[in-house]
Structure formats: structure tokens, C-alpha cells
């Protein structure tokens, strides 16, 4: 039997993700990749893979898989019920599946995204150096659906010998460090405006960006109603569209934009933002280099 998993069911969204395809932004290709990279790396280490191997990013649980071969799996991210053939096994630990056994994820109590690594990695076609799905750009595999058969690669090493690790916490309120720029001069007192208010994550958020709502950020009178000539943007950019309600760009963000970026959040903050459910409150803390 070929090394593979058969997908029996999915929840809100299941995507194949690895660490993305950096280096192609000049061709208009977003970086993509797991929104919570430390969680994917950990899952891969637990099953003995190299850290960048492709796994599954599972939004709000609900994934069911049947192993078509003997393999080791691990589920990371926020704490989530995991079972094998209806027997609870827990997350954040390597779990051995025999051929024919079914792995099922419940829903995480907090947070949004769990990562499932499988020994050998999910071995779909590589496009521009990555197996990641980028649905907007049409790169990588389609969204994972029931009935899909996911091919697995050759196991690279042995699963590591830990029993269990604490799951990530996904707090209901986040403090996020941001460096001002590149267009902070479009705003009157940008640091004051960013830090004086609390923002709430909205349900329009997705892998492109975390859309926030709160008291609108105001640009200076001279810039009101103006668009910038398109300029490059990076992951973590806090872009302020004409509504004044900021968007924090995540991995599938467009490579250029026409609205001012008031600041950029530190890369270390992105995993927590990837787990921020709608309703999570965010307060910015302006830091200096």
C-alpha cells in the first residue's frame, strides 16, 4: 500500500501548509505558509520530520483522517481533543496510527488553528519551492476535502521521545509590539493613536489579514482620501485603509498595496495573531529599534 492518508471529513477549512514560498514577492507571489510556524515546526519534530515538512493547518477542528499505512502523527497549536478510533489520545504528543485507524480532531476550546504533522510529511506537488496552499493566488493544492487521498513522503527520522508538551495558550486579550513605519508620517501622533485604544478582531479576518475594528485611525488632513502609488508590503504590516480600521497582514497578503502602513508588528507576534479568534482584543505597544 502506498503511504497515504484518506480524508474522511473536514471542519471549517483544512489546508496543506509548510513554511511557505519566500523569495518570489517580486513576481507578485505571497509568502504563504503556516500562520503559526512554531506550531508546525513542533508537530514535525514530534513525528521525526524535518521542521519545514508540509502538514495540515486545521481551522477550528473537525478533521478526520484514515491512515492507509502505518505512520506517526502529532497535533499541535491550541489544546484540542484528539482521538484514534474514538479513543482519546491527546494533542502535543506523537501518536502511532496503524493501517486503517482513524484520527479525529475535535474543536479547540480556544485559538483557531491546529497543525497535524505526519511522518514523511504530506507529499503533494512542490510549486515555487513550497507545498503550501495559497487559495487566492491559486498556488499549491486546493483546499483539503473529504475523499482526498494525501500522499505521504518517506519518513526522515524517528519520532522524538517526549510524552507530552503543554499546548499553546490563546489569550482573549493580546498585547502586540509594533515598530512604526514606513508611513507613520501620514498620521497625527501615530504612536498615541495606536496605543490609546483597544482593537477587536473581526470575523472578516482570514489568512490574508486580521481585520480589526475600533475607533478609526485618522490620517492627517493633507492625506485624507488619498491613495499611495502601489508599494510593497510585508507580513505583519498594519495597513490603514480609508475606513481607518487597520488590517494586520498575514501570510497570504498581497505583495503590494495602496494604503499607508502605519507600523509593522514583530514576526514573533504573528503566531499569537494567527490564533486570535474574532472578538479577541488587541492593544498595540509601540517599540523602538
Amino acid at each position: 500500500m502506498k503511504r497515504a492518508l484518506t480524508v474522511l471529513g473536514t471542519g471549517a477549512q483544512v489546508l496543506v501548509q509548510d513554511l511557505g514560498r519566500p523569495g518570489y514577492a517580486h513576481l507578485g507571489v505571497p509568502p504563504s505558509g503556516a500562520l503559526d510556524p512554531p506550531a508546525l515546526r513542533l508537530a514535525n519534530r514530534l513525528v521525526g520530520n524535518h521542521e519545514p515538512a508540509a502538514g495540515l493547518e486545521v481551522l477550528l477542528g473537525g478533521l478526520r483522517l484514515r491512515a492507509e499505512c502505518s505512520c506517526t502523527v502529532a497535533v499541535t497549536g491550541p489544546g484540542v481533543p484528539v482521538s484514534v478510533d474514538d479513543r482519546a489520545v491527546g494533542s502535543h504528543a506523537p501518536v502511532h496510527l496503524k493501517e486503517g485507524q482513524t484520527l479525529a480532531l475535535g474543536a479547540p476550546e480556544r485559538g483557531l488553528r491546529n497543525y497535524v504533522a505526519v511522518s514523511g510529511g504530506v507529499d503533494v506537488d512542490v510549486q515555487l519551492g513550497s507545498r503550501s496552499s495559497d487559495l487566492l493566488s491559486g498556488l499549491g493544492p486546493e483546499q483539503v476535502r473529504a475523499g482526498d487521498v494525501l500522499p505521504l513522503g518517506v519518513p526522515a527520522g524517528l519520532p522524538i521521545g517526549v510524552d507530552t508538551l503543554p499546548p499553546e495558550r490563546a489569550p482573549e486579550a493580546l498585547w502586540v509590539e509594533v515598530l512604526l513605519g514606513p508611513r507613520e508620517d501620514w498620521f497625527d501622533d501615530p504612536a498615541g493613536q495606536l496605543t490609546a485604544r483597544t482593537w477587536t478582531v473581526t470575523s472578516d479576518s482570514n489568512r490574508v489579514g486580521l481585520r480589526l475594528t475600533g475607533t478609526a485611525l485618522e490620517v492627517l488632513a493633507e492625506y485624507r482620501g488619498k491613495q499611495l502609488p502601489s508599494e510593497p508590503v510585508i507580513t505583519g504590516a498594519v495597513q490603514v485603509p480609508s475606513s481607518g480600521q487597520p488590517v494586520i497582514f498575514l501570510a497570504d497578503h498581497p505583495t503590494t498595496g495602496g494604503y499607508p502602513v502605519i507600523g509593522v508588528v514583530h514576526a514573533d507576534e504573528l503566531p499569537a495573531l494567527a490564533q486570535a479568534r474574532p472578538g479577541t482584543t488587541i492593544q498595540f505597544r509601540v517599540v523602538h529599534p
Binding site: A25, S230, P232
Partner: peptide, 13 residues
């Protein structure tokens, strides 16, 4: 890692 131009800018990461 990345070198990309915009209309009036160049980004280097």
C-alpha cells in the same frame, strides 16, 4: 530575502 519594487519605492527584506 525579498527585493521588490513598487511604483515609487523598493522594498528590501
Amino acid at each position: 530575502v525579498e527585493l521588490l519594487p513598487g511604483a515609487r519605492t523598493v522594498l528590501a527584506a
